[in-house]
Design a protein around this nucleic acid. Structure first.
Length: 483
RNA sequence: GCCCCGUUCGUCUAGAGGCCCAGGACACCGCCCUCUCAAGGCGGAGAUCAUCGGUUCGAAUCCGAUACGGGGUACCA
């Protein structure tokens, strides 16, 4: 690295509004912000944007914090941890917005408006009918004295941004240059009738106050970025860099939305996904390492992440790929770690039991919720015979009987102390003598021990349930043959 | 309607003028390994690089138009 090439760490932020749970789309945006901060040795801030009282959803703030915590996206400043720019909740910062709003009025970058919603609606309907863009017609800008008098008399009013003439452009970190003709930009409401700021004002004031260096947000914000840039300019502030990340689409190709059944990110925990796998999968939506590696721990992502490797097209979260990735992450866990992850899924077990189960389960599951099914015959007893064909195909009853007899004898003599290879050899000999393939013949043992022709390795299973239980199950199967 | 963003195998993507009659991953199929099922290894199938037209000796890569998809167009964020 050359001298002068050192860039200071980025200050990024995730600014959710507490209107509901987080879904994969919003979490992916949070993740990119977090990764960008961590990758550059900067800071990641969390800010609650609760300026819309109408849409406030009680409890969702805690849900959001828990989601981020579960995924390991820790914040350096924000709710609960505080920081030099406290508070990190917009409803507690209204004085600040009011102050800057007054400044904007003074310098002529904003004006008060008393138009009623009904008039605005009528105005837009007319514009639309005429094939023109829908923008505020600045009626109140032209009648300032009247407006002032109306407000004096107690009329409700909003503050509008006065968009200057010209062009507004910026170099988007993901999309390159983007330009808007200011004539296309509406005179955005900055302060609502209830005194709260809109996102547009609050976001600019806070990002500046909190010294955010890079605004990484979803692409739906592209059309309002010029408004924000105009605000920065009017206030005399240097704007941050902008990066608009692509949206995440559902498997139906539509944008994820709560309305269309996008699931709360915490539901993935309930479904048996590991946070590291989810983070890995979300990082791969739009971002790629540039190498052929794709399975990454969170630390590996931090070491590799860079915003300029983000692809601008929307991406679909593929459940099958997530499952496969989750399986890979499960297999990457140390046995003790997996045993611990399994606790909620196998509540009837001890830690020691789970550790013994891990070698049997780890290659066989992509999601933790598969553990109960895989371990059921070992923990809950043999399932009822049901539909299973016994003896299985390609195995005659006499061979099955001989195999089971041999197995019972072996188990009772303490044969389970022997290594697998030895057991396979000794029981396999019984089958070979009768011309039955081991693979076919051993299904008899699987059905006897697990109640199904396939499952976790049968000798390991027998050791887990113990010699006594194993012998009992083998005998029960032997008796079934006689009936 | 108006504005903006996007478009490579079913899905996620690599690709920044010749290395690409396009590479990887998931899913799918086959083989190997093997006490079953998996896991793992190897191989296969799968993309006229949205379309059309330019630029160029040469284009997935540059330019333009069109189509399609997405987003915005609120006193929501």
């Amino acid at each position: 690295m050359e001298i002068g090439d050192r860039r200071p760490g980025w200050r990024t932020r995730f600014a959710p509004s507490p209107t509901g749970a987080l879904h994969a789309g919003s979490v992916r945006t949070a993740l990119f912000n977090w990764l960008a901060a961590r990758a550059t040795g900067g800071s990641f801030l969390l800010r609650v944007e609760d300026t819309d009282q109408g849409r406030y959803h009680p409890g969702s703030e805690l849900q959001i914090l828990e989601s981020l915590r579960w995924l390991g996206l820790d914040w350096d400043e924000g709710p609960e941890v505080g920081g030099p720019h406290d508070p990190y909740v917009q409803s507690l910062r209204t004085d600040l917005y009011r102050l800057e709003a007054d400044r904007l009025v003074e310098i002529g970058a904003a004006y008060w408006c008393t138009c009623t919603p009904a008039r605005l609606e009528q105005m837009r309907a007319g514009q639309r009918a005429a094939g023109r863009p829908t923008r505020y017609d600045r009626r109140c800008l032209e009648r300032r004295e009247e407006v002032a008098a109306e407000i004096e008399a107690g009329a409700p009013a909003v503050l509008r941004q006065l968009i200057p003439r010209g062009r507004t452009e910026w170099e988007d970190l993901i999309r390159g240059p983007i330009a808007f003709d200011n004539a296309e930009i509406d005179d955005q409401v900055l302060l609502k009738g209830d005194g709260y700021p809109t996102y547009h004002l609050a976001n600019v004031v806070d990002d500046h106050a909190m010294e955010i260096s890079h605004v990484i947000r979803a692409e739906e914000w592209i059309p309002s970025t010029p408004k924000h840039l105009c605000l920065y300019r009017a206030l005399g502030w240097e704007p941050p860099r902008f990066a608009h990340v692509p949206v995440v689409l559902g498997e139906d190709g539509q944008k994820l939305s709560k309305r269309r059944g996008a699931r709360d990110i915490l539901q993935y925990r309930e479904l048996g996904y590991l946070p590291s796998a989810l983070v890995n999968a979300m990082a791969l939506l739009g971002w790629s390492s540039g190498t052929e590696e794709e399975v990454f721990t969170v630390e590996e992502l931090v070491a590799r992440f860079s915003l300029d490797r983000v692809h601008p097209a929307p991406a679909v979260l593929d459940g099958r790929r997530l499952d496969a990735l989750n399986g890979l992450h499960i297999r990457r866990l140390a046995p003790a770690e997996l045993a611990e992850e399994l606790e909620p899924w196998l509540p009837q077990t001890t830690g020691e039991q789970r550790l013994a189960l891990v070698p049997m389960l780890r290659e066989r599951m992509n999601r933790l919720d598969e553990a109960p099914r895989l371990a059921s015959a070992l923990l809950d007893g043999l399932p009822t015979a049901g539909e299973v064909q016994f003896p299985p195909k390609k195995v005659d009853a006499a061979t099955a009987a001989a195999l089971l007899d041999a197995a019972v004898g072996l188990v009772e003599e303490g044969g389970l102390e022997e290594p697998d290879d030895e057991l396979v050899r000794r029981l396999g000999a019984v089958l070979e003598d009768r011309g039955v393939k081991r693979g076919d013949g051993f299904r008899v043992l699987y059905i006897a021990i697990l109640g199904a022709p396939a499952g976790v390795p049968v000798f390991q299973a027998m050791r887990f349930i113990g010699a006594e239980a194993s012998a009992a199950r083998l005998r029960a199967a032997r008796e079934r043959l006689d009936r």
